[in-house]
Nucleic acid binder design. Structure first.
Length: 218
DNA sequence: GCCCAGGTGGGTA
DNA sequence: TACCCACATGGG
């Protein structure tokens, strides 16, 4: 399965090209990722920009009345959950780290850093892995709906494996230096070709590696 | 109108 | 432990 994942990676890289690296500082990444939960990029971006426009710094978001944060992020959806989550996360970081920064996580083993993040209400395995991988260069593999679906169809993870379980499995199968590009490529593939409802298997560059294609014959 | 979007936490068996 | 569900907005 290790070999198969590497073959998938090489093929996706050839098909879609080298993905761009996202570049936010850890605290901004944390807020942005909470906003992105079960939401598309457009709505996430709108909410994030509104938040930045209304509040000069993350300290201001942290200390603002809940209703103002909720109003600012409304376009992202689920704002009644996300606003308290964002403020709670910003406050927890401030209390535990002594200041509003996540840089101290760099000095921890990745599993300790992950456990620290997921202990915060509103930060689950996917959000934690995004923060670790994207903004701290630490070896965590985020599994979102696309990664879960695509690796499941390929047969890299079993049909009964949950998204949460898939984190550890994929981390064991891929070398850490390709976590970031592989993650990005799987999402690109999931969006462009391997859709949730109507996968375009005729345009898929990896049908020869895909269990789903073998069975469904799309 | 319905489905989907880079999930998470709480409830239930 | 393992499912099931609410949560809300906007685009195709």
């Amino acid at each position: 399965m290790k070999n198969k994942l590497l073959r998938v990676y090489r093929r996706l890289l050839k098909t879609y090209g080298t993905p761009d690296r996202p570049g936010l500082d850890p605290v901004s990444e944390m807020v942005s990722t909470i906003l992105s939960q079960n939401t598309n990029d457009t709505n996430r971006d709108r909410a994030y920009e509104r938040l930045r426009a209304r509040f000069p710094a993350w300290e201001d978001v942290r200390d603002a009345p809940l209703a103002e944060v909720e109003e600012a992020i409304r376009p992202a959806g689920l704002s009644a959950q996300k606003a308290p989550r964002i403020q709670h996360a910003l406050r927890t970081v401030t209390e535990k780290a002594g200041r509003l920064s996540l840089d101290f996580l760099r000095d921890l083993p990745v599993e300790e850093a992950r456990a620290w993040l997921t202990s915060i209400n509103g930060i689950g395995p996917k959000t934690a892995a995004i923060i670790l991988l994207f903004s701290l260069d630490m070896p965590a593999f985020p599994v979102d709906t696309h990664v879960h679906r695509v690796t499941g169809r390929l047969g890299i993870i079993g049909p009964r494996v949950s998204a949460e379980q898939a984190h550890a499995i994929l981390e064991s199968l891929a070398p850490p230096d390709i976590y970031l590009p592989l993650h990005m490529l799987l999402i690109t593939h999931g969006r462009r070709t391997c859709h949730a409802r109507n996968p375009d298997c005729s345009a898929c560059p990896i049908t020869d590696l895909c269990d789903y294609y073998a069975v469904s014959g799309h």
